[in-house]
Amino acid sequence: MSAALAGLARRRLARDRPALAALASLVLIALACLIGPSLTGHPPERIYPDVVRVAPGLAAHPRPDEVRPALQRLAFRMRVSLEEVVQDGDRVRLTLTAQKPIDLRAFRLLPRSGLFGEAAVRERSADGRRLVAEVPIRKRVFLLGTDALGRDLLSRCLAAGQVSLLIGLTAALAALLIGVAYGAVSGMAGGRVDALMMRLLDILYALPFVFFVIMLLVFLRAGLWLVLVAVAAVEWLDMARIVRTQTLSLKGRDFVRAAYALGLSTESVIARHIVPNTLGPIIAAATLLVPRVILLESFLSFLGLGVQEPATSWGVLIAEGSRAIESAPWMLAAPAGFLVVTLVALNRLGDGLGEALDPRL
């Protein structure tokens, strides 16, 4: 693609405001997924057992009515009895009793809960079976709520976005490289070689995707690598047909004949003339390929064949949310929202690039 055509495509794209809005949305989502988990204040894998399935909101937890139940659960794990709880602002004064002397090491459970800080012992009986301690309260805000284990859903969605976008870009890049090489070679070869290569594509098209994934389970464990291999192995087929069609229309042009007359090999003609002149359709198709890959990954993760714990993806979160849709609908709405916005933005950007790079316009 020449510099003049590239500049013309940029000007066309700059006038397409919906495509620019889609591009801005994708940049914001990518930045949020990249740096967001470190800014939320909640590690994605951190479990808060006392705030399970908390609804989205700006309220800080624990609320005043949640302090005593949370402390009672911790006291049970500490094997002590909670006699009195006096809350004063962001601090709470506890009176604990036990049948045996209270081991101070049990107070480590308080900061591990994530809602309370280190305890300071103020009074202790001579036999050690009764003591008074002051504990600071750590306020936590969960903008998108928490899941069934008490993990912050916003942090989980952003961390899942890293995996989903990585799978989408990596598998799409692999499919792009395979499809461009296969389609260019098939189109340039022509004749029986082209017919044989296209029949192989038809065979691969006829193979059901889920059946292919089940076959891969014989060699690979369910997880990230299975998704990458499965998606990259089938998503290059459309790209190969697009590049083959473009190559068939270009190989009879005068500049290709001139390249052969100058003594260039077929490999050089493909690399220096055929592929650069098909970049417009390739870029547009590649942009539309990424959302397809992300959707396939979500489908596999929904079936339990994709990303496995402790890693997560939008597909995994959607599968978890679908099982709790009645009691905690936000567990489904949050990751589904990220996925829908990303897919719509990628598709709209692909349409805009296709229009901007179309030489007929």
Rank of each mutant, 00 (worst) to 15 (best):
L220P: 08
L201H: 03
V231M: 06
A258S: 12
M198V: 12
G263Y: 01
R244D: 09
V243G: 04
L224N: 01
R192L: 14
L250P: 03
L217G: 09
A233N: 05
G252Y: 03
L204Y: 04
G223K: 11
V234S: 13
F219Q: 14
A232L: 01
L216H: 06
L196A: 15
M239P: 05
A189N: 05
V234I: 13
T247C: 11
I214F: 15
A232D: 10
P208Q: 05
R192D: 09
R241G: 01
V243N: 01
L226M: 10
P208R: 02
I242R: 02
A222E: 05
M197V: 09
M188L: 14
T245K: 05
S265N: 11
V256F: 05
S249V: 12
A240I: 05
E235I: 03
D202N: 06
F219T: 14
L237A: 07
Y205K: 13
R192A: 14
A259N: 04
I214D: 12
G252C: 01
M239D: 13
T245F: 13
K251N: 07
A189S: 14
A222W: 11
A232M: 02
V269I: 12
A189D: 00
A259R: 04
G223P: 00
G223I: 02
W225Q: 14
V213C: 08
A230N: 03
I242E: 13
G223V: 06
V269N: 05
S268I: 06
E267L: 08
